Structures are given as C-alpha cells and as structure tokens.
Amino acid sequence: MDSQNEQEELEIDWKCNSLWTVEYPKNDKIGKLLSHFSMIPVIAPFALLLVLILKRNFASFCCLTGLVASTLFCRVLKSYFRHPRPDAGHSASHGKFGFPSDHSMSIAVLVVFVLHYSRKLDSICLRAFANLSVVALSILVIVSRVYLQYHSLGQVLAGYVFGILFAFVWLKASKPAKKHFQSASKRIAQKSTKFEKLTVVLFFAGEEIKMKKNGKKDENKSS
C-alpha cells in the first residue's frame, strides 16, 4: 500500500507544449522553456533549406544533407541497440528506443558544421558569436532531453559522440561533391531565368505590382 502511494506521488503531471509534441511537467516554467530548446535540431533542417534556396551555397547544402543523413543513421543505430527510453509516463510517444539520442546527435553535427564553416567569416566577433551560440544551444538541447526525461544522460552523451564522429566523416566525404554542386547550381540558375517572364512568377515576386505602379507614375508624368 505504501509503495503504491509513493509511486503515485512520483508520477509527473505532463503537459504538452502547444507548439510541439514535447511534454514538460505542468506549471514548470523551466521545463516549458527547455521544451522549446529541445526542438532546435528539428527546426534546423528547415532553416538550412531556406538558406540553401536563397543563397545556393555549398555550406548550407552540406549541413542540410548531413543533418538528414545523421538522423537516418541514428534510426539505424536505435533499431540495432534497441535500448528503451526512460519510463517517465509521457503520453506523446517519441518512439520506444532512445540510444543514441537523435536530438543530441543532430545538434552535435550542427556544432561541428558551424565551427568548421565559421572560419570563413571575416568578422572575428561574428565568428565568436556563431561558435558560442551553437555550443550554448547544444548544451541546452542535451539538458532538455534529460530534464524532460525523454533520454537518459548516457543516451544523450552517446548521441553527441556519434554526432561529432559522423560530422567529421561527412565533411571529409562531401568535399569531392563541391565542384558538382557548384556546376549544378549554375545550371539551375541559368534555367530558372526562363521562368522569370511568366505572369505567375512575376505576380508572386511582386514585380507585376511594381510594373503597374511604374506605369501609373509614367502616365501621371505624361499628363
């Protein structure tokens, strides 16, 4: 009877974050804040995809493909080790297995990529800010996964180590693809000019509106 009462007292009243399927202890402000930081590895690929579309640089391409590949590799490792997550009583399931942590693995990959490519930044202050920010965010991600009881400390540390090793291998393996990426990017840019005269493209780009405004200005000047 006493053990049953103790178990009920230890049970946590989990509340799901309104933005993500991440649960935190109810009325726990730190847990709620960490639930947001916990999703940084999930948001990062979409941010990199946007940068890739706008900038079409190899760094964003390498980072994006590396994050996707590391996530797939982590799923393979999880199915191999089949190590269960902590039994915390979450209602929102993130999968049965938790070794290694894919969130900590992804953020470790991102840390290595940022530290590597930030060396090309001319501004020392900007380079220091980028490096410090990504390291601080990685710590918050690791702490959040353990604090919210989605992973044990061993699972997140293992994910971080696997992520660092994977990132170095990916950077080395992706070097030969740089020339192919640059040539493909140029071809895409050349072919995309064919679509620039389409009315639909001009409309969503806002060029058609500019043309109409300029046309009205010319009419007013002529009158």
Rank of each mutant, 00 (worst) to 15 (best):
L132C: 06
K191H: 10
F37Y: 11
A158D: 07
V114F: 07
S79A: 14
C63K: 04
V143K: 07
P176S: 08
G66H: 08
P84Y: 07
G163A: 05
S223C: 13
M211S: 12
A136W: 08
L33H: 10
N17R: 07
S133H: 01
G163Y: 02
L19D: 12
S79V: 06
H103A: 04
F162V: 14
L72G: 11
N5T: 13
I124W: 07
L52N: 07
M39A: 14
A167L: 00
S118I: 01
V161H: 06
S104K: 03
Y150F: 11
V68Y: 00
Q155P: 10
A128G: 03
F99L: 15
K26A: 13
T21N: 14
V201E: 05
V51T: 13
G206H: 05
L148T: 05
S118A: 12
G215I: 00
V141H: 01
M105S: 14
L198M: 12
A184I: 01
F97M: 10
T65F: 02
L165T: 13
G163K: 05
R56W: 03
A158G: 15
I142R: 01
Y117T: 10
H103E: 08
V146Q: 03
V169H: 09
K179H: 07
F61W: 12
L126A: 15
S79L: 09
H94I: 04
L148C: 07
S79T: 11
S118H: 03
S35R: 06
A205M: 05
I164D: 05
H103R: 05
S133T: 15
E8N: 10
L121F: 02
A205P: 01
D2T: 10
S174A: 15
I12T: 15
K178I: 06
K216S: 11
A158K: 00
I43G: 02
I107A: 04
F73S: 13
C63P: 03
L198F: 14
A158Y: 03
R127P: 00
V42D: 14
V22A: 08
V169C: 15
C62F: 02
G154D: 02
K15Y: 09
R127T: 04
S138Q: 03
R119N: 04
N27V: 01
K221V: 06
S138H: 07
I139D: 04
N220E: 15
Q7H: 02
D28V: 10
H36R: 03
S104Q: 09
I139K: 06
I43R: 02
H90M: 09
V143S: 00
T65D: 04
Q155Y: 01
Y147T: 08
K179S: 13
K15C: 12
H151M: 06
S174L: 09
Y117L: 02
V161N: 08
S35Y: 04
R145L: 10
N214P: 00
I12D: 02
L153S: 11
A130P: 01
A69W: 06
Y117E: 02
A158H: 00
K191T: 10
L132V: 02
R127Y: 04
E207R: 14
F166R: 02
K78C: 09
D13A: 11
L198N: 13
L19S: 11
T193M: 12
R145P: 01
P100R: 03
V114T: 13
V201C: 09
E219W: 13
K78Q: 13
L77T: 00
K194A: 13
P84M: 05
E9C: 08
L10N: 08
V201A: 08
V51S: 12
